[in-house]
Structures are given as structure tokens and as C-alpha cells.
Design a protein around this nucleic acid. Structure first.
Lengths: 396, 396
DNA sequence: CTACTTTCTCCACTCACAGGACAAAGCAGC
DNA sequence: GCTGCTTTGTCCTGTGAGTGGAGAAAGTAG
């Protein structure tokens, strides 16, 4: 199948495409209610979109008391590829133009193996998905990497946990390989976009999305748009000082949030506790698996292990303190907690909430939900698909 | 003189008015270079603006090698009133449409006396300025208050340091009294707008403006626009925890930044030091004035008093730590330090810089200037004038 | 079969805007 | 003073975007 290369010719068409993406199929009349254009003008633009093939009219909808309407929908053959590169694993998914996931693969992989090895893996996964018959090719791809990105060029800059990627032209390279447009962003920003598109943040304009995985980052959404900062490092909250004169951190400072709570820190703390004999539960898991991760802590906690629960509460308190400061500063309408440690669930959430509600001013917290992300591992890939669709569904 | 009531009829006219405001007088040709409109269309819009009286054509400019151009400029009779209500004083200024200050008054006044008393004072000051002949009336007024504001309505909400103002319809009331449009905002946001219009932040899209006065607040500018948060309390950083289990704060928590460093905290620390005999300089000032303020500390410091310098450095360190966190989170292109304590000057700035450059990641600080505000006490009133002019110079 | 609803198409009219021709006004060199 | 060149500003016409109304198409309810 030949891939679509058309782009909306003007802002009206872009608007219509996004409406169809976010709201699903629709009639001309229903579209007209949402775009503030005369029906005649709207009909013209829809006609042009039909000509480009971006949009198709298939069948008639049920009558609503009068003439039946045509179903206008995005071309069902369009396919986006969403890639979410984490520190220790890679997610690849295929979506249709409405950003519904049609297939999803996950593979463990160390990002430090460098861009060449990771790309090979990503392309293999994409090929596998394609081979399964859900896509014959891709109309666009979004990719998230665990570090700051120079957004317009799609190039990682000075990423602490993936030094081999510094300056690697991710966008250019992937676009070459896949033969379609590509956009690159920070993985945390993509998670925020995912939750905004299909998750808990659907109706909120200004919110924060805190991702706690191997490291800690925060997606910032202002007026419905991701804010990336002057050099693309906005939301890098892992190295905010959480504990004065605290633990040494890889960045050279002491007491960074990430050094006290993150997937990596939690695993280390659990190991210490197990070795010191503080927790039978953790010790037995250590013996069984030969090592400990955040998943073990989560399991121990849900089994009622006091030490594991303490570790989670302690970390949640630290994180909550930092978030409390950010809430005072940013006054968001919602705080989403996500990432690998979401498995720690309500123990973590309770600790964070306690700190935020106690430390921030009532005006900022009065109506502030603090919730877990709804999408889990698909948030990143959904956000990636949304990123490229936002790009493609904007005037050429 | 009858006041102007016209408003720009479309986005082009609004754009032209703002260009004339920010860039001063201009010819049609020069305007055409900046707005991407054909000369004919531009001429039409300028003609309409001339008809409304918002803009005038006076005289010819010097030739630049050909026909001389007409000087197109904003009506020189337009007058804006800028009001900056601080915790302990009020600033009122009159500007022309280019936001140049034509007259400026400052009076000590306690904001806790409540809106009625403060309004009386503000109106008296405005009348005095009018009587001096620089204005016959006002085409619009901007006003800043030291607390969060529900921006669209212009009503303070739950302001901690001015409880009597909660819910008072500032915009409505002042508009009645002055007979012109009024916009209300947080004083810190206005300072940011002032520095953006005529100060150090002229060329930066994303920056932070930290105002250290009686309290501490932070103006947040995203993409050239002030960000106010979901409930209007964004930038309220005075109650971020700076010292774990630190001093008790009026808000009920412990260790808030404001409790450890602000005009009020500094004065109290200076008093303690003087009474404990730690500083001869401060003690003698206490005896002379019967009390101490941040100004005394500044004077003592510039006289070389070690205790005063220590107080400033200590406070700068605390503030710098908090700002370091915000820099990591927000990744601004500039940090402006302003407010009453600007008199503490480079000792304060050096302490803040040290903390930020040490604690934040290189990618965020690499090219980050941290500077004192350029406008001093006129930043607030200039920002207020800009606020109302932004409102009036937007399509009706 | 009639009355009414909703959906969609067609057409004429308006208005925003571009772009070129041209007039007005100035400079420089001869 | 005259000629050629430059810059500024105005006028006029053509084009295309967009509106709004008339009415056709297709349905429901009685």
C-alpha cells in the first residue's frame, strides 16, 4: 500500500483532522457544530480532504429524525508508529489515525547500548508488528527518549543516562529507516501527551505528569501544550535537592530526589534491607531471583511487608515534598503520577498526597486531584503517536 | 478632553497598535516590513486607525534617499494609569500610550487597612498627578495587588497578607471610580511584564521574575505570556519549604522560604543581631531610627558590616536553593531578581548565583543569566500600564 | 399522502487581500 | 534646470475565502 503523503492545506483542514482524531467518526453536520464555519465552507474543506485521501466517507449513520448523514472518518488505513525508549526497556506500538493501539510490543533493553543497537531492536520490533498484518507501512512515527531533546531538530542533548546518544540525529536517522516523518521528544513529555489524549488529563489545560521510573522526570503542560523549556530540559526534577546533605548522586551533588527515590534507588534500598535482615520477605525474594527490583518491593508491600511499606512511604514523602514545591510554583489543575513505580500504588500515592496537601497553600491544593496515570505502559507510545499526528495534522 | 473609547477592529489593527507601542513612531513603510501585509491593505488599516483617533500622523520624517515618510504614532493624548499596591506602600504612575512614565508617586501605606482606605489613597494620588497637568483623564488603568487574583474578573482570592481584600471586586470598583477600563493582576506578574516591556527581559520568551519584598513571589512568563495557573496562585513560592523543620511561618507550616528570607524576616534577624550586640553598625542604626528594616541591613552591608553581610548571604543561599529547583523544573532563559531587597545588590545576587549554578544541571544553567531587575520601583507600574494596554490593544 | 425534520448541495454576493501601475516626493550628478 | 534613480504612498482590479439563503434529498410521524 502506498503511504499517505498529503497534509492539510490550511488551518481549517488541520482542525477537522484533529476533531476526527479525538472525537472519532462524525457527520458533516456534527463537524459544523464544532468548527464555527458555514456549512457550505465546511463542505468544501471536507470535499478537499476526501480528495487527498486523508479522510473517507463510508456508509450512512442512523437517522436522527431526518435525512441520514454520511459517516466522515479518518482514513482507516493510516498507521502511526509509537516508540518509547526507556532506560531498561523499549515499547513499540502501532496505532490507527484515531490513535487506537492495534499492536504493542515490549522488550527489555539497556539504552546505554547506544543508538545503533537500540535502533536495530526498534526496527526489528516494528517489522514484527508489520508482519503480523496490522500495518503495511507507517505514515509517521513518534519516538521518546529518556533525556532532554532539542525538539525542533529531534536530537538528544547531553542526556545523563544515555551519554552515547548525545547529538545523535534520532529524527533524521529514524526517518531514513522508516521512510516517513518522525518527531522526537522526551519520554516524560510523551507520557503527559498520552494521558492528555486518552487518559486522566483529557479535560485539563494545565497539569503536571510526574514519571517515576529508573529516574524521575516531570511533563509540564501549559494551556494544552507541552512546555519544553529554553534548552529542552524543563521538567528535569530528578536532581532537585530533596535532602540537604543527603546521599551522593551521580550528578555530583548530594541529596538529589533521584538519589533518594527512583526505581534504581528503591532497588538498592531493598537490597540493603534484605542483606541486613530487616525483611524476611525481601530476603527470600533476593534468594529466589538473585537480585531485587522495584517490582519486588511492590510485591513485598502488597504482601504486607513492613520494611517494603516503609521504603515506599519514605520515598513518597520525599517525592511529595518536591511536588509540593512545584504545586505552589505552578498551580496545576491536576497532578498525574506514572512510570514504572505505579505498581507501588496507593501507598505511594497516599504519601505524596499527604505531603502536598500539607505543605502547599490551600488555594493551590483546594481543588487539586493527585492521581495515578490511567494508561500505564501504553501512555508513552500513545503520546508518541499523538506527537506525530499533531505534527502531520497541522498546516503544511 | 473626552477619552478615547475606540478599540482595534481586528487582529491587524491590534498588531499595529502594539508595534507602535513597543517600537515607537514609525512610517507606513516600516510598519509594512514588520506585519507581512501588502502595502495597500496596511494603508487601509492605518487609515481606519487614524479615523478612530487611536493613532495620529504628525509631520514628515527625514528622507532616506526618497520621498519622506509620514510619522505614524499612537495618539500622544492617550494616558494610562499604573497602580502597584505593595504590602507597605503604594506606587501610582501615569504613562502615555508608549508606556513612558510621565509622572510617578510613591506613598507608604499598609495594605491591611483594607480596600476602601487604599482606594481613597490611590484615587487621591491619581488626582494629584492629574492636577499636575500631565493627564486630563485616563484611557485605562492597570493595578497590581500583593496576592493571588482571579484574573478574568479582577478579584483577589484568599490573599494571605491582605485578608480584608478577599473577594473585593477591585476591577469593577476602580473602573467605576475612574470611568475607564481596568485590569487587575498580581504585583509580581506586573513586575515581570514591566521587565519584559522595558527592562532586562525584552528579548526572552520564557523567564522567571523573583520579587523579594515583604514576601517572596515569582512571575512566570511562558512564550511571552504571563502564566497565572489554574486558580491564579502560580508563582507563590514564598511557602515552599526551604529549611526542613525550620522556623514557624504565618501559614502554619515550618521552614517556608518566606519565614527565612524576605524583607520582614531580614528586619527581624537584624533586630535580633543588634540586640545581641553582634553588630555595632546595626545597633547604632537601631538606636537612631528606633527600628530596623531591610534598608538598614543594606546600608550596614555596604558599610562593610560582617553581620549584615552574613544575613544577606544566608538569605541568598536559601533563596538560591529554591530557585535552583525552579530552574531545573522550568528551564528558563533568564532569571530576574527584583523587589524591595534589590538594594542588597550583588552580595545577594552572588549567593543566589552560587547556589543555582552549583545545584542545577549544566544544560539548564549553561546559558542562564541571573540578573537584577533594571526598572526598580517603576517595574510594577510599567507592567500595570502594559497590562491594560495589552487589553485595550486587542480586538474588541 | 401530508407536514415536518435533518442533511447536504448549489449559487450569488460580500469582503479581505495581493500585487501591479502609478503618482508624489526626494536625492545626486551633470 | 534636467535626467535618472530611490523611497513612499495611493489607486485599482483580480482572486479567492467565506457567508447565507434557497432548495433538493432523504428521512420520520401521523
Amino acid at each position: 500500500m502506498r503511504r499517505m503523503t498529503a497534509r492539510p492545506a490550511n488551518a481549517h483542514q488541520a482542525r477537522l483532522l484533529r476533531l476526527l482524531r479525538d472525537g472519532g467518526p462524525n457527520s458533516r453536520a456534527q463537524l459544523g457544530d464544532q468548527v464555527d464555519l458555514s456549512r457550505s465552507k465546511l463542505a468544501v474543506e471536507v470535499e478537499r480532504l476526501l480528495e487527498t485521501g486523508l479522510v473517507v466517507a463510508d456508509g450512512l449513520a442512523a437517522s436522527r429524525g431526518g435525512r441520514r448523514s454520511h459517516n466522515i472518518r479518518l482514513n482507516p488505513g493510516l498507521r502511526f508508529l509509537g516508540v518509547d525508549i526507556g532506560a531498561t526497556s523499549v515499547d513499540v506500538a502501532v496505532t490507527n489515525a484515531e490513535l487506537e493501539t492495534l499492536g504493542h510490543l515490549n522488550q527489555p533493553m539497556d539504552v546505554r547500548e547506544g543508538p545503533v543497537a537500540v535502533f536495530e531492536q526498534v526496527l526489528a520490533m516494528a517489522a514484527k508488528l508489520r508482519a503480523s498484518g496490522i500495518a503495511e507501512g507507517f505514515d509517521g512515527a513518534g519516538i521518546g527518549v529518556p533525556g532532554p531533546v532539542r525538539f525542533p531538530e529531534g536530537i538528544p542533548v547531553a542526556p545523563p543516562i544515555m551519554p552515547g546518544w548525545d547529538g545523535f540525529p534520532v529524527r533524521e536517522a529514524l526517518s531514513q529507516e522508516l521512510g516517513c516523518p518522525v518527531m522526537v521528544d522526551n519520554d516524560v513529555n510523551l507520557m503527559a501527551m498520552g494521558e492528555q489524549h486518552a487518559g486522566v488529563a483529557r479535560t485539563v489545560a494545565d497539569f503536571l505528569c510526574v514519571k517515576i521510573g529508573t529516574g524521575i522526570g516531570c511533563g509540564i503542560v501549559v494551556g494544552g501544550e507541552v512546555y519544553r523549556g529554553t534548552t529542552g530540559s524543563a521538567g528535569d526534577i530528578g536532581h532537585i535537592q530533596a535532602v540537604p546533605d543527603g546521599r551522593p548522586c551521580a550528578c555530583g551533588n548530594r541529596g538529589c530526589l533521584e538519589a533518594h527515590f527512583s526505581g534504581a534507588a528503591l532497588a538498592r534500598d531493598a537490597l540493603d534491607a534484605a542483606q541486613q535482615g530487616l525483611s524476611v520477605e525481601l530476603a527470600s525474594r533476593l534468594e529466589t531471583n538473585g537480585g531485587l527490583t522495584a517490582v519486588d518491593v511492590a510485591a513485598a508491600a502488597s504482601a504486607g511487608d513492613a520494611t517494603a511499606l516503609d521504603l515506599i512511604r519514605e520515598g513518597g514523602n520525599r517525592t511529595g515534598q518536591v511536588i509540593a514545591g512545584l504545586v505552589s510554583f505552578f498551580n496545576p489543575g491536576l497532578v498525574v503520577i506514572g512510570g514504572g513505580v505505579t505498581g507501588l500504588g496507593h501507598t505511594l500515592l497516599a504519601a505524596i498526597r499527604t505531603q502536598v496537601y500539607r505543605q502547599s497553600l490551600p488555594l493551590a491544593t483546594g481543588n487539586l486531584p493527585i492521581v495515578l496515570g490511567e494508561l500505564g505502559p501504553t501512555a508513552g507510545v500513545t503520546g508518541a503517536a499523538r506527537l506525530i499526528s499533531d505534527h502531520l495534522f497541522s498546516p503544511a
